[in-house]
């Protein structure tokens, strides 16, 4: 590939890495990654992947920027309040790197659209904050044999793992969404803003590693951290032979939409 002088300079710190080099940067520029949710997790993911020169970035979110988002969703600025999140995000992504292509979907993922959207992407990142979406994304990616990164944050904690075909999926760990009455009302869901950055950058790193084919992914491992103690650990996971979606004899064969708490639609 012929890099332009600007590209050589822009990506020089990647090219310098033995594990990346010109060939790796070329892979990044050719890669397509879908970010589901332009919120707390989506913000650092979108910015870092844009900066890294991931050539095509899809970003999907149905919301508009709200003042209460700005405490952690660093891709949106005060002047963006009221603007569709995907538009605000695209604007910043192109500012950080005009070299890439950003595709926006001002929508939420649901059973009827998700397979069609993810089919064009090499890697999917879950940056949502509700269980319905998380299970839907898992099921769709397993069905479509797409790798994806799961992420969740709450209060001072975060968790993430990476699924690739043949490895443990979300349902291997969490068989089904928690009962509706167990999910506390969203008004009480506080989160320390910087946690989103901590976890989102881990997810972005996983996407980059996957595209580059380097290192060990968080497959069959759940990485968890608590920021108050600033303690990180990972727990090994096993693929569940009786998993309702990824086992040899799945019981779930088509996608269904879960019921969403009204305000839970808002991504982190």
């Amino acid at each position: 590939m012929n890099f332009t002088d600007d590209q050589i300079e822009r990506y020089s710190r990647h090219i310098l890495l033995k594990e990346v080099g010109g060939a790796g940067q070329e892979k990044l520029l050719k890669a397509k990654v879908l970010i589901i949710g332009a919120g707390g997790l989506g913000a650092p993911i979108a910015l870092y992947l844009a900066a890294a020169g991931v050539g095509t970035l899809g970003i999907i979110d149905g919301d508009r920027v709200d003042l209460s988002n700005l405490q952690r969703q660093v891709i949106h600025f005060t002047a963006d309040v009221g603007v569709p999140k995907v538009e605000s995000a695209k604007d910043k992504m192109l500012q950080i790197n005009p070299d890439i292509n950003v595709i926006t979907y001002q929508d939420i993922v649901y059973s009827k659209n998700i397979l069609d959207i993810i089919k064009d992407y090499d890697f999917i990142i879950d940056g949502t904050d509700n269980f319905s979406a998380k299970f839907l994304i898992n099921d769709a990616c397993v069905m479509a044999k797409k790798p994806y990164s799961h992420g969740g944050i709450l209060r001072f904690d975060g968790q993430t793992f990476t699924h690739t075909p043949g490895h443990a999926c979300y349902r291997c760990v969490f068989k089904e969404p928690p009962p509706k009455n167990a999910v506390p009302t969203c008004s009480q869901a506080g989160v320390l803003g910087a946690i989103a950055g901590m976890l989102g950058t881990v997810q972005a790193t996983e996407a980059l590693k996957y595209i580059l084919g380097i290192g060990d992914l968080l497959t069959d491992r759940l990485l968890m951290f608590n920021a108050l103690k600033m303690n990180f650990r990972s727990v090994n996971l096993k693929k569940n032979p009786n998993c309702p979606i990824c086992s040899a004899t799945p019981t779930i064969t088509e996608l269904v939409d879960g019921e969403l708490p009204v305000c839970d639609l808002k991504a982190h």
Binding site: I8, S12, I15, L16, G22
Partner: peptide, 13 residues
């Protein structure tokens, strides 16, 4: 430095 090395790597590629 380090652009000279960056460019060297790209040629070696």
């Amino acid at each position: 430095c380090p652009m000279n090395f960056v460019k060297t790597k790209l040629v070696l590629d």
